[in-house]
Design a binder for these strands. Structure first.
Lengths: 194, 194, 194, 194
DNA sequence: CATGAATGAGTTTTCATTCAT
DNA sequence: CATGAATGAAAACTCATTCAT
């Protein structure tokens, strides 16, 4: 009946992750998570201090990855793309995406993060989004009066990630799907700006 | 101090709507809604049978509008757009969007619907999404093996609506913003297919 | 079945007071308090925000009385008593004790305060005790090297109050009992100092 | 790292004693005791049957000492003291207190016993207190109508012990402090009776 | 209509105790 | 002996809902 420590820990985390994805963190109940992890509520507290610790364990690596991404990718000396060199640029991105940490971002826990309504992660998330908006603003040479536009496009980029993740394919398929949608989004953006 | 019956009903609905938007339906508490509506929890139950009745009152018209939209707009004899006639097509849509029920869809309650995790509305929402996917599949002459792609694009379309609504501008501005993002999205789609 | 609001509020407070006296605040359970107050746990939360609010409602007036007492009675221009004028001094005190707020201190809740192990009241209590020690130090013309002695005597004074209160007699009897023990304590102190 | 059996047993007892003194028996948690004893909760149960067994091990010797004291000291053929021979009497007590089991009573566990709110020790404690009251009643030639007075004085005697113990000085200092307060208490008692 | 008291099941969390290893 | 995983009951507190007034 007894499972080895690390196994159960993973089972609990997996159950929590599924519940958080399904119901959202705030609506998930420890009782249900315990049941899904084939253990008791009390026992979960041997592995995690409290409900938020479950969230923390899942999201802290994600936040760290987001910060890495921001530091490494959101650098302002990149070229900006036009319709003329966009194909070329995509080839570059296509290669990068295989090499960089982009793929580490492809984690369902991102969806938990983006659905959160409470906790301090909301602020961390918004801080990242602000950076992403600034990055995109630079790339697209946007004026301040286009800020609403910018906001929407950035969110669509996020949703692009979101929906790729919801497909739950294998990493390679996920990457391709992401590139397909990303390309479409960028093409639209650049064409319209022209 | 006493408010007329219909007024209070609206106040309650408005408070519920704001709470549902802020916290999500499942995380909203009747106590807070009552407080925001300047009435008591008990009194809410004179106007609405239960918590779900609040949701129903808010979402049923939205569902009805979605169904109208599906019946009227998702008809298969529409022209499909190519890069060559896209400008012309947009002028048409631009006109339609002013005349048709599109504008009635521009209702924050849509956001409540799209954030729901439980209740039967999830199924109604998914049914509408399926229709929307089929519609888009036709427009874009997609093959079955592109279904993942299709799914993502449809969701992005939804998010386009979502984020326009979150801007909370006046109707005319909202419509323009929507058209801007919609045009970008479509341009990307069509260009890529070319 | 329904009791008027203020009645039940008092019932709950009385039940809490008895439980706190019996088991100590930390060991008292809301469930038991509810049962003793003939209501449900949930209902207590209509009257009081949480368990500590029960304590606060009981102890805040006590703290206030202690502060009044300290301000009014712990004044340093009092005469100090010697064995020679002690009888005379007692007559004075006997009168004062009838007129001043001393009698308001004769509240069982003092016992709750003195048994507390946690919460911020511990600090408030100790602050008062420090003042009382200083007051007694002045009266008894104590030197610093007698501080241990002082501490003990002050605590015995407190216990004098404590045990008078535990007798649960009517106010007049309580006052007399207090004076009897107080006189004994002071006589011992003064005689020994001589 | 491993400690010899008897050593660990003592460590656990010491940790329990400190916790019981700090938080009271009822508020102490086995988890904290285990941590303070540098062992695990489970392991405590190899040495002691349950939480109450910890208490029993600490308090049974104390109870036994109290019973010895009662049998040996609470004998009714003692002299009774008056104001005239009190100095002489104190010299006697001062000697006795060094020789007799009085010193064995000077055990912090007494404080645990006097703070207990539950368990059968409450009854044992009260039984001892009753004997002590009877003893003091005899010494002071009290009438029945002075029983309230008696109760208080006995409790003050207990508190006298309590506060001496809380000072945590070395045995000799403790004895002297006790004598100082004890003398003051008795002087007051006897003088007043006069 | 309106109030807010009342209920009971739900929530997260803690705790003494047991048990497999 | 020792570990720490596991359990189940109890803790404080919340919440949708009902009902007396």
């Amino acid at each position: 009946m007894q499972v080895k420590k690390e196994d159960l820990r993973q089972q609990i985390l997996e159950a929590a992750k599924q519940e958080f994805l399904d119901k959202g963190y705030e609506n998930s109940s420890m009782r249900v998570i315990a049941k899904k992890a084939n253990t008791t509520m009390g026992n979960i507290y041997h592995y995690f201090d409290n409900k938020e610790a479950l969230l923390t364990t899942l999201l802290d690596p994600v936040i760290e990855n987001l910060n890495h991404l921001a530091e490494e990718h959101f650098v302002q000396d990149d070229q900006d793309y036009t319709i003329d060199d966009i194909e070329e640029a995509f080839d570059l991105i296509n290669t990068q995406i295989e090499l960089t940490e982009f793929r580490y971002l492809m984690d369902e826990c991102l969806l938990i993060l983006f659905d959160l309504k409470t906790t301090h992660y909301v602020e961390l998330r918004e801080a990242f989004m602000e950076k992403a908006r600034n990055h995109m603003k630079f790339h697209m040479k946007m004026e301040n009066d286009e800020s609403g536009y910018l906001d929407i496009v950035t969110n669509m980029f996020v949703d692009c990630i979101r929906h790729v993740l919801e497909e739950k394919k294998n990493p390679e398929e996920t990457r391709q799907e992401f590139m397909k949608v990303f390309r479409m989004l960028c093409t639209g953006l650049v064409t319209i700006k022209k």
